[in-house]
């Protein structure tokens, strides 16, 4: 599996222009970028770079050749998840560090810790994209991911406003309102609880996604 990691690292560093762009963004991040945007963008960028290695594998039908080397189908899938997650995490950690330094020492404003949890949601993208890419290839995969994202956005868009309406007409008693407020304050103070919940959800998504990917690749003909 070591060969797979080296291959993907070398492929990622072929995108030198994008990496230079990243450095420029980092500099902007120090002086004035919103931490939510910074963390989201960096994590997404690094995750995207890692996922793009699948495109190179596909372009030269490299997967077939790799499977003739001492690499099993299972190894290929494991490597893709580890590589993408690690690379995404590098982006996440970098952006957290840059935005934190920017907020505290340059901009002099309080750090919005909810950005830490929101950034974690980006890690759901590989869980969705890796099995789709293995099944359909990266070109079709991108379209399918877009379609699924659209459907999810549509469902949220269709469900949330009615739910908000229902909640707005619901009359709470004073005690109920106090209980909700206390809960919100408590949770708000303990952001790490939200982060933990998001992390658990991501781990669950990865677990399901991994077994779907494994099932697809075992049946696939190259």
């Amino acid at each position: 599996m070591k060969g797979l990691f080296i291959k993907d690292l070398k492929l990622v560093f072929k995108n030198k222009f994008l990496l230079v762009l990243m450095v420029l963004f980092s500099l902007v991040g120090f002086v004035g970028m919103d931490e939510n945007f910074m963390i989201g963008y960096f994590t997404l960028f690094f995750t995207g770079l890692a996922i793009s290695t699948s495109g190179y594998d596909e372009r030269n039908n490299t997967i077939a050749y790799l499977l003739t080397t001492p690499v099993s189908r299972r190894d290929y899938v494991i490597e893709k998840y580890i590589f993408t997650t690690c690379f995404g995490f590098i982006g996440y950690a970098l952006s957290v560090a840059i935005s934190f330094i920017g907020c505290h020492f340059i901009q002099g404003k309080p750090y919005d810790v909810t950005a830490l949890s929101l950034g974690l949601f980006i890690f759901l993208i590989p869980a969705l994209m890796i099995p789709i890419n293995i099944k359909f290839g990266t070109t079709k995969g991108r379209l399918i991911t877009l379609a699924i994202s659209g459907i999810i956005a549509f469902i949220i868009g269709a469900l949330v406003p009615p739910l908000l309406m229902i909640s707005s007409v619901t009359e709470f008693t004073f005690d109920e309102e106090m209980a909700i407020t206390e809960y919100v304050v408590e949770v708000g103070l303990k952001t790490y609880l939200i982060a933990g919940g998001v992390l658990l959800a991501i781990l669950g998504a990865y677990f399901i996604s991994f077994f779907i990917s494994l099932n697809i690749i075992k049946k696939k003909n190259y």
Binding site: K7, L11, N61, T62, A64, Y65
Partner: peptide, 8 residues
């Protein structure tokens, strides 16, 4: 029809 990525 298959080999390592030709960008390498």
């Amino acid at each position: 029809d298959s080999f390592f990525p030709d960008i390498l």
